[in-house]
Design a protein around this nucleic acid. Sequence first.
RNA 1: GGAGAAAUGGCAGAGUGGUCGAUUGCACUGGUCUUGAAAACCAGCGUACCGAGAGGUACCGGGGGUUCGAAUCCCUCUUUCUCCGCCA
Length: 423
Amino acid sequence: MLEIQRIRNNKEEVIEGLKKRHFEASELIDLILTKDQEWRKQKGALEDVAAEMNRISKSIGELFRQGKKDEAEQAKAQTGSLKDDENKLKEQVQALEQEINELMYQLPNVPNELVKPGKSEVDNEIVEEQGEAVQFDGKALPHWEIASKYDLIDFELGVKVTGAGFPVYKGKGARLQRALISFFLDEAVKAGYQEHIPPLVVNEASGFGTGQLPDKEGQMYYIGEDDLYLIPTAEVPLTNLFRNTLIPQEDFSHKLCGYTPCFRREAGSYGKDVRGLNRLHQFDKVEIVRIEHPKNTARALDEMVDHVKGLLEKLGLHYRILRLCGGDTGFAAAMTYDFEVYSAAQEKWLEVSSVSRFDTFQSTRLKLRYKTAEKKNELCHTLNGSALALPRIVAALLENNQSEKGILIPEALIPYTGFEVID
RNA sequence: GGAGAAAUGGCAGAGUGGUCGAUUGCACUGGUCUUGAAAACCAGCGUACCGAGAGGUACCGGGGGUUCGAAUCCCUCUUUCUCCGCCA
């Protein structure tokens, strides 16, 4: 959520910034500011009445103490209409607050100055490309055929047990998953991120804190009986560890990581894109999260990008980095870098990581602040990124590393898999 | 799942209808004293919103109610603790 203060003071900057998303905000913002002005007026009136009520109440107490019962009763009588006014104003103020909030929720984050305008993924900038496409003599098999050939992943069994999008990993396929998780976690810990095992189910307040609610309600699995949500990413529980937190000093940097399964309903997806591991309802991911002083955010984002690059290079994957254009940048993010690996058999790029800075968009909702040297409370910045999401990494590894001898495991992963080849 | 107890400021812990936004202790910050430190003493020390400011309003686990007035009474939810049951 944007800060109302920012909209009051820098209305034009917000409107201009949101244009990069092709989001026309001026009408919405004018409406918000009108309601805000009305709110301030009513709120002031309400507080005046409340102050008057408080004053009378105190005097009644004083009169009773002095034994002046009659005068006290008289004073009581005059509060009646004041109380009506108070209740009426309170209703109006609350209604306005709700209206303003609902309007505020519709405003996405303002893109960073580096973000280029654009409508969709076709406008994303490729900022870097490393490695080159693997060449095959014959035809390369897609990963779902490899998975079945070596009995690594069983999609049909998953359908039987649960439904489409819930694969069952078996044998070396399961071991490869576990190896990747351990590898990613070890690398994150080496880079200074503290490992966490968070809950996989969160409450409504947490979903709201990181911005999944109310914007993307339909994306999450909802457990109605207990009013809880299955996490779509570890970002939600990890960032919410810091909900309602005041960090007592100005000099801080919290770096955390965690492996979790992620659950996404992916309502409306179908077709070729969902084949095999390309899009799942349940998948594994190691996430890195940072809570930073605003002055360190740019550097933190660069460090996270470098970390993900390091992982992909150790796995020997051909990858590229995109800076998303305004229109493709997620609702809550100010800037996002996507990482894509090249899938040799499918002959397309697969997104395997998304690294974003949110600035104060999440911390406003989270009430996550730090204390400045001048004893002021200021909002922290939050960032997060996948490091990495497993399924498409597995897809790329299987497809790119296929050979006559079988699937060759990258050097860096062998200590974790315990085998060098899948055959 | 059943029975009981509890939830107050960074922590501890008072407060059971009327100057209580909240006694006190510890911690913390500044000052005096000291060669320095400790001790002692003095002062300060929650958050949010509105306001140019003076100041005002709200907040004693969350929500609702009673009352002129609620930390205090009532309802409800949540969490924690103790006992019983069940269980990886």
